[in-house]
């Protein structure tokens, strides 16, 4: 988005893209169909289930090319155009093939002030690709993300729409990338804030064991 202010051009989507996923793979298993129908039954109208169904499809196919969006729309019985509109609205739905791990580095206000861009550029240099691009080995895609709601532990990043990595610094990034290369995705981490230290043993969530204590956020090297 930062770049978008300097170069505000919206691209046309490819209106007649080649099919990526062959027809024989473009099917849901009966369990998946059943799951989707269960979601459909949870809502007054079928289109309520579109987000969960798209999510399931993304987990299955790793991304959402038009033919998959079409498949999802047909499965829950809503118009293809509506499903496509939803899929393009959310950045967490990947419309093109991404790396195995997508690193969403937050550069919104809080993270920016605490060094979000430092971290983004450090990762870009380390992996040798720019944001929006995927490394040649297909392991990592770097993306610049808007606020992910973890300002208290800025700067931070998110791994493939999943766990957050808080209080980033260069050592932590190094360790993270090494771990990801070995296939170890860090577990969900909860960050406790000073005012919560006394509550529930410092962790407001009961479902996690992993707790990281509050640290004073760093100050950006480049943004002042």
């Amino acid at each position: 988005m930062g770049d978008f202010i300097k170069h505000p051009f919206v691209d046309m989507p490819d209106r007649n893209p080649e099919q990526v996923i062959p027809n024989d793979q473009l099917v849901f298993t009966s369990e998946e169909k059943k799951q989707i129908q269960t979601w459909v039954s949870h809502y007054p109208t079928a289109d309520g289930a579109v987000m969960r169904a798209l999510w399931l499809a993304q987990e299955k196919f790793s991304f959402l090319p038009p033919e998959v969006i079409k498949l999802v729309a047909a499965e829950i019985g809503i118009p293809y155009a509506n499903a496509y509109g939803v899929a393009t609205f959310y950045t967490q739905y990947f419309k093109e093939k991404k790396g195995k791990h997508v690193l969403d580095v937050c550069t919104c206000f809080s993270c920016q002030l605490c060094g979000g861009y430092d971290m983004l550029h450090y990762i870009e240099n380390k992996l040798g690709v720019h944001k929006g691009e995927t490394t040649k080995d297909g392991l990592f895609t770097i993306q610049e993300a808007e606020c992910l709601g973890a300002c208290g532990s800025a700067p931070m990043l998110q791994i493939t729409n999943g766990p957050f990595v808080h209080n980033l610094n260069k050592d932590k990034v190094d360790a993270l990338l090494d771990a990801l290369r070995e296939g170890k995705v860090p577990a969900f981490t909860s960050v406790t804030l000073p005012q919560d230290e006394d509550e529930m043993g410092g962790n407001r969530r009961t479902d996690v064991s992993s707790v990281e204590s509050y640290i004073v956020p760093p100050i950006s090297e480049t943004v002042s």
């Binding site: 919206v10 989507p13 490819d14 038009p66 079409k70």
Partner: peptide, 26 residues
């Protein structure tokens, strides 16, 4: 969506980027 029921148009993208468009292949 409501009158002709051809369902051929949708708003794509979000925020300042959005505009009406047909889905790919339509």
């Amino acid at each position: 969506d409501e009158i002709s029921e051809s369902h051929q148009l949708t708003i794509i993208e979000r925020g300042v980027r959005n505009y009406p468009m047909t889905p790919p292949g339509v």
